[in-house]
Measured scan of single mutants.
Amino acid sequence: EPSQADLDALLSAVRDNRLSIEQAVTLLTPSSGGGSGGGSMDAKEILTRFKDGGLDRAAAQALLAGRTPA
């Protein structure tokens, strides 16, 4: 399960175009075949909204942490 520091680094990389959204989703869902963790939004949607400015960093982190299976 990614830590808050991992999520923060991942969000920074996506925002700075050092990591594509697809690459980030793969890192967030290493063994689930890329499927959502059952959250209301999947990781790709969360990351896309964050990059487009629709979500701030704290909200994106909380959503990603919340949808990651324990």
Rank of each mutant, 00 (worst) to 15 (best):
G53M: 03
G38K: 14
T26G: 11
A59F: 04
L47T: 00
K51N: 03
S36D: 06
D8R: 04
A5E: 09
A59M: 12
S40L: 15
R49P: 01
K44E: 08
E45F: 03
G33S: 10
T26F: 06
S3Y: 11
R18I: 13
S36K: 12
M41W: 10
L7C: 04
V14S: 00
S20C: 03
A13E: 04
A13P: 00
Q23N: 08
E1A: 11
L63I: 08
T29E: 11
T29Q: 14
L11W: 02
T29A: 09
A43T: 13
R57L: 13
D42F: 10
A13H: 04
L28H: 02
D16T: 06
P69E: 15
I21V: 08
S3E: 09
L19I: 15
K51I: 06
T48Y: 04
S40K: 08
P69G: 08
A60C: 05
D42A: 07
A5L: 15
A13M: 11
S36R: 10
L11M: 05
K51W: 03
E45K: 04
L64R: 00
T29I: 09
F50Q: 00
P2G: 12
E22T: 06
R67E: 15
T68Y: 11
A24R: 00
K44M: 07
S12G: 07
A9D: 13
A9Q: 09
G35F: 04
A58Q: 11
A65M: 12
D42C: 14
E45Q: 09
L19G: 00
P2M: 10
Q61C: 09
L64Y: 00
G66C: 10
S40M: 14
Q4A: 13
G38I: 12
A9S: 09
L19D: 00
D52M: 09
P30Y: 11
V14M: 02
G35V: 10
A60T: 05
A65V: 10
L63E: 06
M41S: 08
R49N: 05
A5N: 15
L64N: 01
R49S: 05
T29F: 13
Q23C: 15
S20A: 04
L55K: 01
D8Q: 06
G39W: 04
G34I: 15
P69H: 15
A58C: 11
R18V: 14
G34C: 12
K44F: 14
L28I: 08
A5R: 07
L7Q: 02
G54Q: 15
S32P: 10
L28Q: 01
P30F: 08
I21P: 03
S3A: 10
E22K: 05
T26S: 14
R18P: 00
A24S: 02
P69C: 09
K51E: 01
P2H: 14
S36I: 08
Q4C: 15
S40I: 11
V25R: 02
L63N: 03
T48V: 07
S32I: 13
I21N: 01
A9T: 09
L28A: 02
A43S: 06
K51P: 01
Q23Y: 09
R67C: 15
L7H: 03
G34D: 08
G54R: 15
E1W: 12
G33C: 13
K51A: 04
P69I: 15
L47M: 03
S40D: 11
G39K: 11
G39Y: 05
A65E: 15
K51S: 03
L47V: 02
E22Q: 05
G34R: 09
P2E: 10
A5D: 06
T48L: 08
K51C: 04
A24E: 01
A60L: 03
T29G: 13
A24L: 03
I46Y: 01
G39T: 09
L10F: 04
P69S: 11
R49E: 04
D42G: 07
T68N: 07
K44I: 08
G66S: 09
G66Y: 05
A13I: 02
A5G: 09
A59I: 07
L64C: 02
E1V: 11
I21M: 03
L63W: 03
A70T: 03
E45I: 06
L47G: 00
A43K: 06
Q4S: 11
A58T: 07
G35D: 12
R67Y: 15
P2L: 14
T48F: 03
R15N: 07
L64K: 00
R57V: 08
G54V: 13
V25C: 09
I46S: 01
R67P: 09
A58F: 08
S3I: 11
Q61H: 08
R67K: 12
L27S: 05
L47W: 00
L63M: 13
L55W: 02
L47H: 00
T26L: 15
G34F: 03
T68R: 06
E1Q: 12
G53I: 01
R15S: 09
G39R: 09
M41I: 13
G39M: 12
A60F: 02
G66M: 06
L63R: 05
Q23E: 14
V25I: 06
Q61F: 06
D42T: 10
G38A: 14
T26V: 12
I46L: 03
